[in-house]
Amino acid sequence: MAYSEKVIDHYSEPRNVGSLEKSDLNVGTGLVGAPECGDVMKLQIKVDPETKEIIDAKFKTFGCGSAIASSSLATEWVKGKSIDEAMSIQNTDIVEELSLPPVKIHCSVLAEDAIKAAISDYKSRNQD
């Protein structure tokens, strides 16, 4: 099981760790958890009000390495995408990219859920 450099990188040096201003109307926050293991993950996106493109993403995850790497990868992927494009990211994409073993598949589910939760939070706060 040789992991690609990229994968190990997401584990040892996760990208986009941190927080965005929650009260900013352009920020959507998703908070999800995995009851299988008690992991909690917060993922935030910042959307350009004009282009509706995700211009920034941050996360904070309390959980195992796989959960951290999954959220790190998720934030990388959503940046530069439109909301609809980001909605279509599937956990299986994350599983494949990070070659997650069966025991860790729920970590990728968590990341997918976090993206969806952040987008729906953004949408609910921007219903005109």
Binding site: Y11, S12, S99, P101, P102, K104
Partner: peptide
């Protein structure tokens, strides 16, 4: 246990478990 992502260790049988013991794990292909 087994090696998982990024060099982390996933336990399949925990320490101090009474033996004999059996645990199964399902794997799939990429």
């Amino acid at each position: 246990g087994i090696e998982t992502l990024g060099g982390t260790f996933s336990k399949i049988i925990t320490g101090n478990t009474t033996i004999p013991v059996e645990e199964s794990e399902t794997f799939t292909t990429n």
